Computed example of a mutant assay.
Amino acid sequence: MKHFTIFASRNDIDDIETTISDIFAKGYEIKRDDNDYFLKSKTLFSKHKITIRVASEDTNPDYFANNIPGMMGFYDRIPFKDENLKGLVMTQISVLNTMLAIEAEKDITDGQLQLFTGLLSRVGGIGFLPNGVLLDQAGEVIVYPDGTSGPSNFRPHACTRKVLGPEITSEEGEQRKSKTIAYLSERKIPFIHGLPQLPPLGQCRFKSKEDIARRAVTVLIVIQYACDVAQGEDIEGSRDFFTGMLRKFGVEKYLTENERKLLQDDEPAREEAINISWQYEAYWTLIWALGLVETLDFPDQVCDCDYAIQVVSSCETFEQFVLKTAMRSEEEMLDEADKIYRLHWACVNSRIQGEKAPAGMNESIVLERRRGLFWIIGHRDEAWDHISMDT
Rank of each mutant, 00 (worst) to 15 (best):
N131W: 00
Y75M: 02
V133C: 00
Q114V: 15
D136V: 08
S94E: 09
Q137C: 10
A55D: 10
F80Q: 03
K106C: 04
D136K: 05
L115Y: 12
K49C: 11
F74K: 15
E140T: 03
E57F: 02
F128A: 00
M72F: 02
L119A: 01
A55T: 08
T51G: 11
V123Q: 04
E103T: 13
K49V: 06
I68S: 01
G73P: 04
V89L: 04
M72V: 09
I108H: 00
V123K: 03
L134V: 00
M90S: 08
N66L: 15
G70K: 09
K106Y: 04
L129P: 00
D58V: 14
D58M: 14
N97S: 13
M71F: 12
E57R: 10
K86F: 07
T109E: 07
S121K: 12
L100H: 03
V89I: 03
L113D: 07
Y63P: 12
I102E: 05
V89P: 00
I78Q: 04
V89R: 01
A104L: 08
K49E: 13
L120F: 09
V89C: 02
I78C: 08
F128H: 00
G139R: 09
Y75I: 02
S46L: 15
S56Q: 10
G139S: 08
S56A: 06
I126R: 04
I102Q: 02
A138E: 14
R53C: 12
D136T: 10
L113S: 02
I68V: 13
A104V: 06
D76Q: 08
G73W: 05
T91E: 08
P79A: 12
L115F: 13
E57P: 01
P79M: 12
T51W: 11
R77F: 01
S46V: 05
N60I: 09
E140Y: 07
Y75Q: 02
G127V: 03
N84P: 04
K106E: 10
S94A: 15
I102F: 09
D136G: 05
D58T: 14
G87Q: 11
F64S: 07
D107S: 09
S56V: 09
F45I: 14
H48W: 02
I68P: 03
R53T: 15
R53P: 05
L88P: 00
T98S: 06
V95F: 11
F64M: 14
G111K: 13
D107V: 00
D82Q: 11
T109C: 02
A101V: 00
Y75H: 06
V141T: 03
F74Y: 14
G70Q: 05
G139T: 05
N131Q: 03
N66Q: 15
F80M: 05
F80E: 03
T51P: 04
A104S: 13
L119G: 01
D107E: 13
